[in-house]
Amino acid sequence: MTTLTRQDLNFGQVVADILCEFLEVAIHLILYVREVYPSGIFQKKKKYNVPVQMSCHPELNQYIQDTLHCVKPLIEKNEAEKVVIVIMDKERHPVERFVFEISQPPLLSISSETLLSHVEQLLRAVILKISVCDAVLDNNPPGCTFTVLVHTREAATRNMEKIQVIKDFPWMVADEQEVHMQGSRLIPLKTMTSDLVKMQLYVEERAQKTS
């Protein structure tokens, strides 16, 4: 087993590739499980050797891909602390927040086994948890929408330039009302620890979803 730093093998890029690939599947699945979009736009596919629901709506797919394309450089440089999928009601108040908290080790102990099969197993477990999370969550009110928030390690304003990768896809600092949720309960879903990346997923759910 060899120990490498972040600069070797472009370690950050490897982690960003794996995480963005995973986040794409996770976002599609959350939107399906939490019924943000009608189930008719989703189709069953296979990822990490488990069935997942992926949208076949081109505009939605493009939106998710553009979002992750912009997030990727931040993950690559280990500047993204949390990626949050916020589900909001009609008044744009959050009702649920799926928080992916990411941390990357400064040193990488590398072997083919740990890199591929182990990480895939762990990501599969997270996906499976998402697919059954509706059992522990209350139903959302009708007409919900979603947004993706990225919490950065430094001030958000410092990272604005780094995330503006796509010209027609601008980013902005989120409103406070989109971030804070009063009277929420915390539901831990899954924690994964690998040599490549550590991640924990939890849901913050608003106590009173119907206002």
């Binding site: 939106y63 947004t147 928030l149 896809f169 601008p170």
Partner: peptide
């Protein structure tokens, strides 16, 4: 507050109407 607030895409995600679904 500025330090803690996250960033998000300015553009809102697409809205899928039932008519879109039938077209799809």
């Amino acid at each position: 507050k500025d330090l803690c607030l996250p960033i998000r895409p300015q553009k809102a995600p697409p809205v899928v109407l039932p008519e879109d679904l039938t077209r799809l």
